[in-house]
Design a protein around this nucleic acid. Sequence first.
RNA 1: GAGCGCGUAGCUCAGUCGGUAGAGCAACGCACUUUUAAUGCGUGGGUCGCAGGUUCGAUUCCUGCCGCGCUCACCA
Length: 437
Amino acid sequence: MKLDFVGEKGFALYKLLDLGDIIGVKGYLFRTRTNELSIHVEEIHFLAKDLLPLPEKWHGLQDVELRYRQRYVDLVMNEDVRKVFVARSKVVSAIRRFLDSRGFIEVETPMMQPLAGGAAARPFTTHHNTLDIDLYLRIAPELYLKRLTVGGLDRVYEINRNFRNEGISTQHNPEFTMLEFYQAYADYRVLMDLTEELLAQVARDVNGTTKTTFNGHEIDFGDWQRLSMREAIIKYWPGAAGAKPHMSDFVDAKTVGALVKRLHDAKIHNMPYDPAEPAGKTIAAMFEAVAEEHLIQPTILYDFPVAISPLSKNKPDEPDWVERFELFVGGLEIGNAFSELNDPEEQRRRFEQQLNEKERGDEEAHAMDEDYIRALSYGMPPAGGEGIGIDRLTMLLTGSRSIRDVILFPLLRPLQPGEIDAADSEEEAAPSTPNDK
RNA sequence: GAGCGCGUAGCUCAGUCGGUAGAGCAACGCACUUUUAAUGCGUGGGUCGCAGGUUCGAUUCCUGCCGCGCUCACCA
């Protein structure tokens, strides 16, 4: 920047610039004595003014609340944050590339649904005025995507938002992004192989390697273990609770109850237990209490109890169990898949069981969906379906410990805008009602 | 929803065993025409999250509230 080249006016402008202003320059590139790439400016144009002071350059913006509330400032100041969101974009494009190359087509199904189905979660409710009906923001696209396989769209996927009216944590945001895909004439074994390939490829596309570091652990998306839920309970059974269970301990409520008693007696896990609930529910809770935290390296956890899987196909040789698996990486649950139940009669019985659970007080039990049963009655091909949480996958691939670090605008409680201003003006405008309620 | 922690200048942070606050950077002004976070000199900037209580006096102690974080609960 030299007076001789930009003229009086340009130099005067230059002197008025502040940190954060946006300018355009014309000139040529050169290297300074210290070999720093620079621009020899011959013309300078003023493009935009930064009126609010930016945080200091050296420390950047570190206040987490401000980083989430004013993400634009976070992005300006912190290059690492920009890299995370670039990586997130690569995650999504890599998934699309992978699925597109295998003949899947991307579709869009309703976000507002008259019944919130396809998962077990409390929905958000909204209202359409003209039709005068309540609608739910979807908790999953599942039942609509499977209707498409009835219609002959054999390989479909959707990457979009789900909404669940539940708690917020480092692993939960009320709106989050899910990949769901369905492949006709495949079962959960096929999906296990496909999943391993998909996630290894995504990791390579994003980071150039299948390895990533998360929460102090090196994780290799190219190296998976497969464990059944019962095997996992056995493998991680705590020594304080006595000898490891056998497969025969999982057959009915009586033997499962005995296992729970051993855990409770050992006082090392406070797992919830309701003797009236189906044994399958208890077994799933036992898995969570005993084994889930140990699943750091990529794990396919397969074969789930039918009691917690209303949409999955039974195992042919074990009717109380279904062909279903979940993905655990870094201690996070990042995916859920199963051979889809395509028998309308069995599906009706499953919904009826869910209604019983609802009667027992389970708010998240699945609702009866008559149109879905009708769709199955037209013949749904056997299919495998899977959902993968994009936010959590991105957390793993970017080493982000909080889901808020991979969502551009995570949900925070809004500040009352102008709270102070309003208080001031109220005092001036209406000072006479101190005890008014 | 529960427990714990945090909230001081635009940012990053000190500090006050209770006597209304400081630094660095940023901003502004002047000088310098150059450095790769940080040139020099000077100046301005804070109802110490909000509201009560105790006290002669509260940013500091106590209570409540608000916001955020962590853990737990909840979360197929």
